[in-house]
């Protein structure tokens, strides 16, 4: 299918959804207060964007998420490489990791309130915790799965252990690492928004709950749309980076 056909089909289906949504509200088939038609949400959304008031909460969410996510990725890849490459490290850490891994990390948000309060350090920690394990597991898998032929070839060409880890094992594991990082991206965002909602402080998650509680329904939808756009944008950036960094991954 050509790009033009695809774009046309996408436009048509979005238009159809918006039209049905609008008509449902107009025809009073759904409660227009609880689900305002797009024609009412659009001006609210435009207000928020034009006035620039979306900037502060958006940046707060993005910044805390980015810090937590980066910590998780760096630690996950570093520990994962060590565990994947050195058997002794692997067997030393594996039992502890197997114990911590099955905890749904969202359950750790309230305990962390108690220790770190409601602010930035708590959110960064929860995001990092949630995002850490998928990256770690994927890196271990990647490093352990590197084709021995590749490693032995490098050895016969005179590469030392450090070179082998950074020039052979790391690049060869990258496709899997990215798969783990993609899972982490979604999980980290879930935890970030949850922490904001529960802490009642700052960010897009807090605003969505706050608008709902104060029955500012249109604003609530507007903020959800902004958050959806953030998710879409992060995915897009991720895919772009992935395609640039592991361009050699075949199809």
């Amino acid at each position: 299918m050509s790009t033009a056909t695809k774009a046309l089909q996408a436009t048509l289906s979005f238009a159809a959804v918006l039209a049905v949504w609008e008509l449902l509200g107009r025809a009073v088939l759904v409660n227009a207060v609880l689900l305002p038609p797009p024609s009412l949400i659009a001006p609210t959304l435009a207000d928020i964007i034009v006035s620039g008031s979306f900037l502060r909460p958006l940046l707060e969410t993005l910044l805390l998420f980015a810090v937590g996510y980066s910590i998780a990725c760096i630690l996950g890849v570093a520990i994962g490489l060590a565990m994947g490459w050195y058997d002794r490290v692997y067997y030393l850490l594996e039992p502890t990791i197997e114990l911590l891994r099955p905890i749904p990390k969202v359950a750790l948000v309230p305990p962390l309130f108690l220790f770190l309060g409601l602010g930035a350090s708590m959110k960064i920690t929860t995001v990092a915790l949630a995002a850490f394990f998928p990256v770690l597991i994927a890196t271990i898998q990647g490093a352990r799965g590197v084709d021995p032929v590749l490693v032995n070839t490098a050895r016969t060409l005179g590469a030392g252990p450090a070179r082998i880890v950074f020039r052979i094992v790391l690049p060869a594991s990258l496709p899997l690492i990215f798969t783990g990082m993609r899972v982490s991206l979604a999980l980290g965002l879930i935890v970030e928004i949850l922490a904001e909602m529960l802490s009642g402080e700052g960010g897009l998650g807090y605003l969505i709950v706050d608008m709902q509680r104060s029955f500012a329904i249109r604003q609530m939808y507007a903020w959800i749309i902004i958050l959806a756009a953030v998710g879409l944008f992060l995915n897009f950036v991720f895919e772009y980076l992935e395609s640039r960094i592991v361009y050699w991954r075949g199809k």
Binding site: S13, V17, G205, M211, Q212, M220, L227, A228, L232
Partner: peptide, 19 residues
């Protein structure tokens, strides 16, 4: 349908709970 799915999928799930 895929464009619709791709637009809804990235919404972090806590956000759909309040509405």
């Amino acid at each position: 349908l895929t464009p619709l799915v791709e637009a809804v999928r990235p919404i972090p799930v806590p956000a759909i709970i309040p509405p």
